[in-house]
Amino acid sequence: MSQSDGHAGDTGARAVRDAVAARTHARPDPAFRARLKQEFTSGRFGAPRLPVPQRPWFTRPALLLPMAAGLLVVAGLLGNRGPDWRVVSARGDGRVHVGAASFAPAEQVQIAAALRRGGDVRIEGAVTLDLVAPGVLAVTLAPGTSMTLPAAPGRWWSRHGRARVGMGDAYFSTGRGFHGASLTVGTPEVEVLAVGTAFAVLRHPQGSCVCVMEGSVRVETLSGGEAVLVPEGMRRLVGVSGTAETLPILEDSVHRLHEQRSSVGRALER
């Protein structure tokens, strides 16, 4: 033992030492003692009495990494998603058809809900529909227009949208959030590529007209011929037969685009 080299203690320390030393020797439970002896002599040890605590399944490294990656992907997808379309105004008499659903112009909430991520829109009667994807893009559909509206461009990727005007007049204005994105608008005669501008695509039985109020757009005639860059203040007319010419923009188109800007301006710049 160790009395000779022990703690040079006072009375308190000695009392503690005595108390520790005086403790009785613990002995194993007979059943445990017999079981362990059996295991030791046979060399066949059972499972440990105390189960090793398992980490919750969701904290295991093998799952943690894929889960984190999955969460990142989901967060990325959600974060990248562009704004939903909102109805700024729907005025005039008639109906607004979104896909197979039909709405009165006053049902703006329902129209917005049906159009949240784009879709086929058809204006019946004398309704003018102003839509905006806040901060990114505004579209005004004049009476009689039918078009396919894309979802607003993504924030970081999928930054290209594709719209199609089947008939009627559609006016497009881009906002600050559109920077770096692009929009292609197709008609049976032309394909218009815009990267930040205000322009109109007018589609009538005689052909298509692309009017540019701000910036410039590239207009490609589908029946052949080279793509043309249409600058601000000009319009490109392409007939169903493929004839094409570039002319100054009409006052009416300028007026309509101004009207759109004043209608959706605040929402577009947000």
Partner: peptide, 17 residues
């Protein structure tokens, strides 16, 4: 604790074996 002591004793005799 008894259970822990039993577990430790089992482990010790396993190592000894």
């Amino acid at each position: 604790e008894r259970v822990l002591a039993e577990d430790a004793a089992s482990d010790v005799f396993l190592k000894v074996h």
